[in-house]
Design a protein around this nucleic acid. Structure first.
Lengths: 334, 334
DNA sequence: TCAACTGCCGAAAAGGTTTTCAGGAACGTA
DNA sequence: TACGTTCCTGAAAACCTTTTCGGCAGTTGA
């Protein structure tokens, strides 16, 4: 199937290419009847303009690069979907590049994307902690999502972990819980620290301190959730709520509570984090959890980028609030 | 940062654009010293050729479209990664488009991709069952992955579910199991039927029939895994192995076996399907399961497509074998 | 000495579109 | 009739690169 060019359309419609172009692009200086002829010719030939020729002349490609560090991870995907969604409604297409956590590969992809003259770039990190900036002298705007850039001159969109921690504890307090523990992941993750800070902050506001005497940092795994819960119960058998730093951890927590014949949420309420549906919704009971709203983050990133194309972006780190999803693992006491 | 063009490079090197082009592209008719001058000028200006101008003249864009139906789903991602990986080493970039299961949206994306003159297309389905063909008269080669096209003239790459079912049962037989049941998902899925067929086939080969008298079709959920297992145990309390149609179902199966105080794998061995790591590896005990090798499928799709660009593709449905991943939920009897 | 090569280089065309600008047609006005 | 307007249309330049082909200089062979 050979492709029709604007020349073919013009010929069929009996006009010049210039007129054909203007007719198809809705320029005003063309008679209605002429426009109609051209449109018809175009659809008859199933014409679609060659974007490369357009790009060459307009200096806009209608493409953006999405540079992710780990596709595998479940955090990139929703952001990617949000971005793809927001662009999809415009006439922008997305180049997907996965650097697999390798900075050489990342450079390579970056070069390729610039060579393709993308109009902008979204960089999605693998971990919520900050990552190296791509540099300041890039010819296109760049937005960092999820993982902020380490250069404050860049614009980063991240989720508000401190707020999320506060959200979770606030909910537990409203449920009438007073002895609230916090079991979370790797202490070297800024996200773990931030969530804990938010949690402690909200507790303090209520005049409470964390049950068990400390925040239990460990690993982002089901196994750690189990281990930490056992230790916690030993030290503080009358705990009435556990805020877990991830849904995986929460699954472990619930598991041990069952083993110990403690009713969830009757005796102990549990809140997870991430709203990883397959884990949270299939738990017994289904987990109340904090959703990161990553899709929204991706959508906003796309919008911001789009708005900034041609102009310049802001800078700094912008935080996006999470959202509490209540399921059956929490309920009011009594 | 303004971008350098070939003109700038040529000027700096003191040659014509034609010579500069030939020097950079390794054409033979240019003196070594001249080439050197050009290369140096190019790197000094950080020149990278405008791919749109190249595309215009060479009629090749070095891009492919990846049209997926549901990014959300966990099956698209590994395929996508495999494809991205295989292309990444070449100088091909991938346009990602998610149709969200909407055929209107799919048409829209298809049109956009063709307008961008992609060199080829990979269509990744959401379900393993066949999907509508994009049509025969497309100007670029198309490969269907995971979900085969309903037009036998197209080329489809899918995973071999029948072989996977055989693989699972074969393993259980080698473990000395004789009373093997099969609990699986929605009977309207071809994949469920195929896996069951493979399983029954291997059983028959051994002179066995399926424990419980029938294959338990139901839903792809943990809850169904639990329900079906209860029914199964009632009807056939001495079952010594259960092949589950998915890891989710397997989680439910294991759950009920625990409740009934049946040891896994001591008394009953369990095999899952999909190797969805978060579920399979975190189960207690970790699940032996069939991996679909989707990444490989994606890689091969990319290679095939690359090979076919310019020429033509084969047709028909090509099946890719799965791979048994053994963990602790299966072991030899005694 | 002249003809035929060989090795390098550059002018120019091509690819498909957008945009500017000049000019033709039709019309009204003096 | 001459002229100024208003509408439309089309020729041509521009975007950046690749590729063809002609030509120049120097070399070889007779």
């Amino acid at each position: 199937m050979e492709r029709a060019t604007l020349r073919d359309v013009a010929r069929l419609a009996g006009v010049s290419v210039a007129t054909a172009s203007k007719a198809l692009n809705g320029q005003p200086q063309v008679r209605a009847s002429t426009r109609e002829k051209v449109m018809q010719a175009a659809s008859q030939l199933d014409f679609s303009p060659n974007t490369h020729a357009q790009a060459l002349i307009t200096q806009r490609t209608g493409t953006v690069g999405l540079l992710t560090s780990d596709l595998e991870g479940r955090f990139s995907i929703p952001i990617l979907m949000g971005a793809e969604d927001a662009f999809g409604t415009d006439q922008t297409s997305v180049f997907l590049c996965d650097a697999r956590g390798d900075s050489i590969r990342e450079k390579h992809h970056l070069r390729a994307l610039l060579s393709r003259r993308v109009d902008g770039l979204i960089v999605v990190g693998a971990r919520p902690d900050s990552r190296p900036s791509l540099g300041r002298d890039l010819p296109v705007p760049v937005i960092y999502a999820y993982a902020p850039s380490d250069d404050p001159a860049d614009l980063s969109l991240v989720s508000d972990n401190e707020g999320g921690g506060r959200l979770a504890v606030d909910h537990l307090i409203r449920c009438g819980r007073r002895k609230i523990a916090h079991i979370t992941g790797d202490a070297t993750y800024g996200a773990a620290q931030d969530r804990a800070r938010g949690a402690l902050d909200r507790l303090a506001q209520e005049g409470l301190s964390v049950a068990g005497g400390e925040v239990w940092f460990g690993m982002w795994s089901e196994a750690w959730g189990r281990g930490a819960t056992r230790m916690l119960l030993e030290r503080c058998p009358d705990v009435d709520a556990i805020f877990a730093g991830s849904d995986e951890i929460a699954r472990g927590v619930v598991d041990v509570l069952h083993e110990e014949r403690l009713d969830v949420p009757g005796q102990v309420a549990v809140v997870g984090y991430d709203n990883w549906t397959i884990l949270a919704a299939n738990a017994r009971p289904p987990l109340t959890t904090v959703d990161l709203n990553l899709e929204q983050l991706g959508r906003v990133a796309a919008q911001r980028l789009f708005a900034a194309i041609g102009g310049t972006l802001g800078s700094g780190i912008e935080k996006f609030p999470g959202r509490l999803v209540t399921r059956e693992s929490t309920a009011s006491l009594r």
